[in-house]
Design a binder for these strands. Structure first.
Lengths: 224, 224
DNA sequence: GAGCAGGCTAAACAGGCGTTCAATGCGAAG
DNA sequence: CTTCGCATTGAACGCCTGTTTAGCCTGCTC
């Protein structure tokens, strides 16, 4: 086997990164209940080595979270002026290489925890930026509660995607996942556009009569 | 104890129903990874008895699914003319007694599986009825793809609720859960009303220019 | 060449899991 | 009273989990 030096083989980051990548893929595919030995087999190593490198399974997951978050931050600048949250993720996963990351993120949101909250805050922040930009450009209506609207849209988009993948467990390879993701986008695009263009209710009385006791809280979405 | 003639019959007060109820509560609270011994302790029995009555853990879960589904069907007639999916669930959980059922349903959707698909189909069916009724009453706009819109709205409402509870794990008693549910409804009500009344985009060009190659598929939402 | 450090492995360990089994207790029937 | 049937128990089993431990084996350093 190759050792820790710097051999000429394709070894980006060494076995540690290899384990981490395998863990991201396996966690994304099977959820965080996946066993260390399974991940070890995927990475071509043993379970003991994982603990040797990451201290524990939780340490491995922290490393995966940090790695995915770093990738997310790196790929953030590729984000375009898109209004829909699901489409944003879909675009990110358009690059087939990023499918495991999106899969891992969905698993993370599904399982809750710190990365889930961070991811949600990320998406809410992005959505806020997009909405503000669209509002400034005159293509998006103003809101009487912008922050609440932003959080609402982000929750809806992320949750809808999550339900889709929970109900369509095409737990195959990444190509299947990407195809399902595209199918999802194709399915929701028209209803989303229709809803965003013409709303759902015929008249505005329900909105105009609303007391709006929602104080449009600050962007902290964690505490109840 | 009573020795029932029919072993599988619903026997209010019997140990079988007691185990099932405890399992619904525990599964809803901790997820389906909860151990048999934990459920047994909750029900005041032993793990062996659970297997004796339900055959296996999967059998117990099937019994829970069937029970929850029966309760859902029973409580369906209480549904009112509400447009929002989340509010529907919230109204159902308004009765404190129904909080464990809603919790179990959310866990079920989170975990996927048959009950999740059935629940989703239920909600889609209900949403379709509400939308059609509202459309007939002239308060809801017509859609160029009604079935797609229905499924879209159901996915959004259900997913948003799911993300809320994943990110706000107030895993305390049922009172906490109910309070969090009310908080959720309070939070999303205004943005939902605003979106449903005035949409999101300023002009309709994005909708009018849409080719609409979505063939508005039949109400089967399970297969990809 | 000798010695050391560390990546890496295989085996063992402790604990939890679902499940099985023999035995107990109690109520009903003969 | 005896006997049977069934709900119920507590202990045991086998499996899988994350983790620990001891040792090998390789490459670097002197």
């Amino acid at each position: 086997m190759r050792t820790g030096g710097a051999p000429g083989a394709v070894d980006p980051g060494g076995a540690s990164a290899q384990i981490r990548d395998a863990a991201v893929v396996r966690f994304g595919r099977d959820g965080f209940g996946a066993g260390l030995r399974t991940i070890a087999d995927d990475a071509g190593v043993t379970a003991g080595l994982i603990v040797h490198h990451f201290g524990s399974k939780e340490g491995l997951r922290r490393a995966c979270d940090a790695h995915v978050l770093a990738l997310l931050r790196t790929a953030k600048e590729e984000a375009l002026t898109d209004t829909d949250t699901g489409s944003l993720l879909a675009r990110t996963a358009g690059i087939e290489e990023f499918a495991p990351i999106v899969r891992y993120l969905l698993r993370s949101v599904q399982a809750g925890g710190e990365l889930a909250a961070t991811t949600a805050e990320h998406m809410i922040g992005d959505a806020a930026a997009y909405l503000a930009a669209g509002e400034a450009a005159g293509v998006i209506r103003s809101s009487r509660a912008p922050a609440a609207r932003t959080r609402f849209l982000a929750y809806q988009g992320l949750g809808s995607l999550l339900v889709w993948f929970t109900l369509h467990p095409d737990n195959g390879d990444d190509a299947r996942f990407t195809a399902s993701l595209r199918e999802y986008v194709r399915t929701i695009t028209f209803p989303a556009v229709e809803l965003f263009c013409q709303g759902l209710f015929v008249d505005r009385s329900m909105l105009d009569d609303h007391p709006l006791h929602v104080p449009d809280p600050p962007s902290d979405g964690a505490s109840a």
